[in-house]
Design a protein around this nucleic acid. Structure first.
Length: 439
RNA sequence: GCAUCAGCUAUAU
């Protein structure tokens, strides 16, 4: 069974359902017990590729094979649905579980839903799930509370968040390092740098086990307040405590130098991270492109971007087996980096260049996303070209890209200002049909 | 069952 599961994972990643079928048949022929975990592995593989439909087909396939889903498999399905933005689907699975005495929801089930509702701003719903799990005799744990706490933080309700923090600390004693980290982050976002530092120091002094994430968050707060030299001190001291910088740490510092308009230093740090053996990622590149642009060096930014773009065709040594096989794969510069560039062109009034670059992206195998189009649409609208903006908007939809709330707001603004009231109504109707509420 | 659940960095209104 283990052998087959291992193979099944690979089959799942390759997206070959047929092969999976024959594997399954072979297993049954050989009298090899097929477990739900076998199916779950395949489902998760699909899920990570964003192939929700395929994952669901595997789920159904499992039922057809006469296996009823257990809590684990249902949770996997919920996780896949949630990660890919199908909250409604996840709720349906929950409903099935609620009415299934053999397979009721467990703490993981609720934790996932609490977290997702919190992240999408529905705190009330998140709390309802929390109540419901208690009614079922399931006790919320650190993760449940941290999700709830985080949702308040996200909404900027720092006072309520602090109250909740105190409550869960006093009543349930269910706070850990992650909860403290979340608290620091919330305080930082609320502009309470001093308090954030205070909690951070308390954490350090009380002998609480730290990790690099806590340091990264503290660094980010400092850097966003333009306290670059404070950040530098922390960067040094963390290493003295054996917490070594990751790519995120470097990205934060580099963005700090960019925000402080010290782009040269940012570029030097970019070099030194590579020397430290840490690979820059798409965040690094978009931070640098943005930094160069904001420093008025648009053309340098473009040059940098195109250089990285052509360096992107490289060997991907993600060795999956022990055979040392290297998969040659074409890597593409992340859309987000191009989007930063597009935005810079638009903001500099170089609309033509931006539109040209949109095509360059596609030629380089980098598919524009909803951000790319929104940037261009907004640029056109700002230039008083409402008709062209509309055309670009249509273009986007024809490329199979769903508009989101920001896109709709942008369009409403453009059309409204151009006096195209009828078209505004069309947009509003479109929003409704997608289940989006105007904000 | 070491598998499903919480915290860090970039782009649009």
């Amino acid at each position: 069974t283990k052998t087959y599961s291992t193979i099944a994972r690979l089959v799942g990643e390759a997206g070959d359902l047929k092969l999976m079928h024959s594997l399954l048949q072979q297993m049954q022929k050989e009298g090899c017990p097929v477990t739900p975990y076998f199916f779950a592995d395949i489902m998760m593989a699909y899920g990570h590729l964003g192939k929700v439909k395929e994952a669901y087909l595997v789920f159904k396939e499992m039922k057809n094979a006469g296996l009823s889903p257990n809590q684990f498999v249902n949770n996997c399905l919920i996780s896949i649905l949630i990660k890919n933005g199908y909250l409604e689907g996840a709720k349906k699975v929950l409903n099935m579980m609620r009415s299934d005495d053999e397979c009721p929801p467990d703490r993981v089930t609720y934790n996932m839903l609490i977290d997702k509702c919190g992240k999408s701003g529905n705190i009330v719903k998140a709390q309802q799930y929390c109540v419901e799990m208690r009614q079922r005799g399931l006790w919320p744990n650190e993760k449940s509370y941290c999700s709830l706490f985080g949702s308040l933080n996200k909404k900027g309700k720092i006072e309520k968040a602090c109250q909740l923090f105190d409550a869960i600390k006093r009543k349930h004693k269910l706070v850990n390092r992650v909860t403290y980290t979340e608290l620091i982050k919330g305080l930082g976002r609320a502009g309470e740098t001093e308090k954030a530092l205070e909690v951070f120091k308390k954490m350090e002094d009380s002998g609480c086990v730290m990790d690099v994430v806590v340091y990264n968050i503290m660094l980010d707060i400092l850097v966003k307040r333009h306290l670059v030299s404070e950040a530098w001190k922390l960067f040094v001291s963390m290493q003295g405590k054996q917490f070594f910088p990751t790519v995120v740490t470097y990205n934060i510092l580099i963005s700090g130098f960019c925000m402080a308009k010290r782009v040269d230093e940012a570029l030097r740090w970019y070099e030194s991270m590579k020397q430290d053996g840490i690979n820059p990622d798409c965040h690094t590149h978009s931070i640098l492109v943005g930094g160069l642009c904001k420093g008025g060096q648009i053309d340098a930014a473009y040059k940098f971007l195109m250089e990285k773009q052509s360096a992107c065709i490289l060997k991907d040594n993600a060795s999956r087996g022990n055979e040392g096989e290297c998969v040659e794969r074409e890597m593409v510069m992340s859309v987000a980096v191009h989007n930063v560039m597009l935005n810079a062109f638009v903001k500099a009034g170089r609309l033509e260049t931006a539109c040209t670059h949109l095509k360059v992206m596609e030629e380089n195998g980098c598919t524009p996303d909803v951000f790319s189009y929104s940037i261009i649409v907004h640029g056109l609208g700002n230039a008083g070209k409402a008709k062209e903006a509309s055309a670009m908007y249509k273009n986007m939809k024809e490329s199979g890209i769903q508009p989101n709330l920001v896109t709709f707001n942008t369009m409403i603004d453009i059309l409204g200002k151009a006096g195209m009231i009828f078209e505004v109504h069309e947009i509003v109707e479109e929003m409704k049909s997608l289940g989006l509420k105007p904000d």
